[in-house]
Design a binder for these strands. Structure first.
Length: 285
DNA sequence: CGTTACCTGAAA
DNA sequence: TTTCAGGTAACG
């Protein structure tokens, strides 16, 4: 569910609320603990209770709750996870699975319909974040870097953009949106993109993510921000889940296919088909 | 590389 | 009843 803009919205909502608070309790639903944290509740409490929160960061789609002993609670919401701030006696969230009790009576509530989300307490957060590719909104993420990631790959460009080791934070919504904005077909072999297409794609990735953040994320289904409110971005998407509806740019009906195992939406006219390599131009071996 | 599994529910 | 779902790890 949540991609970079959704996770970043949650981070911005919660960071000022949690920073400086002390964790005074941890509760996890019994049927969820194994999948969520993979450790006994006593172990989880031992590492969290009594710690002061130093800040809330983000890397790719991970939330990083920094603790005063140098450890980090690394959280991933996967498909249906939610993390919301609640004062004291607010009623239980739908599919609430866990909560962090904070001093002063507030709570961070974790709910997750499908139970795919994960928590792990690590001494060194780089053990997790080092596996991720660059942050697409970081100034260090360059056209040249993107070109390198795509170069020589036969995989569909969409598959490469979804690979968190190449670039961190894009998911199914924003990949489809970025490819539309760049005028690139999702199934084009990554290595076949022209220099101009790579440049457009780089700009499009950034602009769709920035717009997603400005609109506080896309609430197609489960996503809510750190206060439990829906985002707005789903009302502004150009292609995602718009199959059968006219392209806003040219009127052609938006198509839906499967690429990289994911539902994929694109405009057959605005997004050029992958350039066909002529059989006689292919090098043997 | 693509496919499957994880889990639960909504929509077709 | 079947298919699909915003993610990713583990398969073959």
């Amino acid at each position: 569910m949540p991609e970079l803009p959704e996770v970043e919205t949650i981070r911005r909502d919660l960071a000022p609320l949690v920073t400086g608070r002390r964790i005074v309790g941890v509760e996890v639903d019994r049927g969820t603990l194994d999948r969520l944290a993979g450790v006994p509740i006593e172990a989880l409490r031992g590492t969290l209770v009594g710690r002061r929160v130093e800040g809330l960061g983000r890397r790719g789609k991970y939330l990083l709750l920094a603790l005063d002993d140098g450890c980090t609670l690394v959280m991933h919401l996967r498909m249906t996870g939610r993390l919301v701030w609640r004062e004291g006696k607010a009623s239980e969230e739908p599919y609430e699975r866990a909560k962090l009790l904070l001093d002063g009576g507030a709570e961070l509530r974790w709910s997750d319909l499908r139970k795919f989300g994960t928590w792990q307490v690590v001494e060194d957060a780089t053990a997790v974040t080092d596996k991720l590719g660059p942050e697409p909104l970081d100034p260090l993420f360059s056209v040249a870097g993107l070109r390198t990631s795509l170069a020589g790959r036969a995989a569909p460009v969409k598959a490469v953009l979804l690979d968190q080791r190449r670039v961190a934070g894009l998911g199914n919504i924003y990949v489809d949106e970025a490819l539309y904005e760049a005028g690139v077909r999702p199934d084009a072999p990554a290595g076949d993109l022209s220099a101009a297409s790579v440049r457009r794609l780089h700009g499009a990735m950034r602009s769709v993510l920035e717009r997603g953040i400005e609109n506080r994320g896309a609430s197609f289904r489960d996503y809510v921000d750190g206060q439990g409110n829906q985002g707005q971005q789903h009302m502004f998407v150009q292609v995602f889940r718009r199959q059968g509806k006219p392209c806003y740019r040219c009127g052609t009906l938006i198509a839906r296919t499967v690429v990289a195992g994911r539902g994929t939406h694109f405009c057959p006219r605005c997004q050029r088909p992958p350039r066909k390599r002529r059989a006689d131009a292919r090098r043997p071996g």
